[in-house]
């Protein structure tokens, strides 16, 4: 008797909700939005090209970027009429190294620094921010204090001091920047986690008996991921510019490593007679940072709309 009743009500129920799924899947919506977002597409294309150049540098570069040829110092790039060398399309620098090859290898340095700094600072900032945001109270107070302490320290001066103390090398630059650029990660992750923590699906997971680490990793993290990637792009661009600035001042990557910032420094003396020595690495830096920012901006527009 009860059984038939249940079956009848079951049939009734299914009839009741013969509703269709209203919306297209979020992934297909995301795809459509990406294709409609020009800044995201332009940024992504430039970024992919630069990353490809960095990876394929040994194949693309016509010369070894460290090879000096003092007989061919400061040759002009191809658009000049005199003093050009068919072997060096973009000319050579003051010690006769092929400028094109150095620019190509320079992308490796910038991307390496940008990426590893972002990873280190991203991990530190996310752990601090998510912990503070999820637990709140005392934990939050402590993390806030650490963030404020960090914000009170001038990155640039500390970086220069660290280089003086530990010697200048790629590793030192990466570590110093990585250990200093996590503040934005922490601040953003903290506030987003705080919002996510109070949502009912987190409460539902707790009521289900999920452990706290599970909730943080499986419930909250996927929902803060899009904001995390946006901050990551901003920090990556920031790190690349800081490295260039440090190298330009001589506190960053040391010669003869082909870093765009260092190349700017080396080209400084020839600013009036060979302006391309400054302009070319400058344009490269500009393009890379612009691409990352366009990409990040587009990513924000594309993903934040998804959450609405």
């Amino acid at each position: 008797m009860t059984n038939t009743n249940a079956t009848i009500s079951l049939m009734f129920r299914q009839q009741q909700t013969a509703e269709d799924i209203l919306e297209p899947s979020p992934w297909s919506k995301l795809r459509r939005r990406i294709l409609g977002n020009h800044s995201f597409l332009i940024g992504a294309v430039i970024l992919v090209v630069i990353v490809a150049v960095a990876i394929l540098a040994p194949l693309l570069a016509p010369h070894d970027p460290y090879d000096q040829d003092l007989t061919k110092r400061l040759t002009n790039p191809f658009w000049h009429e005199k003093k050009i060398d068919p072997d060096h399309a973009l000319g050579t620098d003051k010690v006769g190294r092929d400028y094109l090859s150095r620019l190509i290898y320079g992308s490796q340095i910038s991307l390496l620094i940008g990426f590893s700094t972002m990873l280190i600072s991203g991990v530190i900032g996310t752990v601090l921010g998510v912990t503070a945001g999820y637990f709140g109270g005392r934990v939050d107070m402590v993390v806030n204090f650490i963030i404020n302490t960090r914000l009170a320290m001038p990155v640039f001066l500390v970086a220069m001091a660290a280089v003086v103390a530990f010697g200048a090398s790629l590793t030192v630059v990466i570590l110093v920047l990585g250990l200093f650029l996590w503040d934005r990660f922490a601040v953003v992750m903290r506030s987003i986690t705080m919002q996510a923590r109070d949502l009912d699906y987190v409460k539902a997971a707790r009521a289900m008996g999920c452990s706290t680490p599970y909730i943080i990793v499986r419930e909250i993290f996927p929902n803060v991921l899009s904001s995390l990637t946006v901050v990551a792009t901003v920090e990556m661009a920031n790190a690349i510019l800081l490295e260039a600035a440090l190298s330009f001042l001589g506190f960053g990557v040391q010669a003869p490593t082909p870093s765009w910032g260092l190349m700017l420094n080396e080209g400084r003396e020839y600013m009036f007679f060979s302006p391309w020595l400054l302009a070319l690495p400058g344009v490269c830096l500009f393009l890379l940072v612009l691409a990352i920012n366009l990409f990040g901006d587009g990513l924000r527009d594309v993903t934040l709309e998804r959450e609405r």
């Binding site: 009839q15 009741q16 909700t17 013969a18 509703e19 209203l22």
Partner: peptide, 10 residues
């Protein structure tokens, strides 16, 4: 406990 009426669909 009586069944309420409803407007099915959306």
């Amino acid at each position: 406990g009586e069944r309420l009426g409803s407007v099915p669909g959306i």
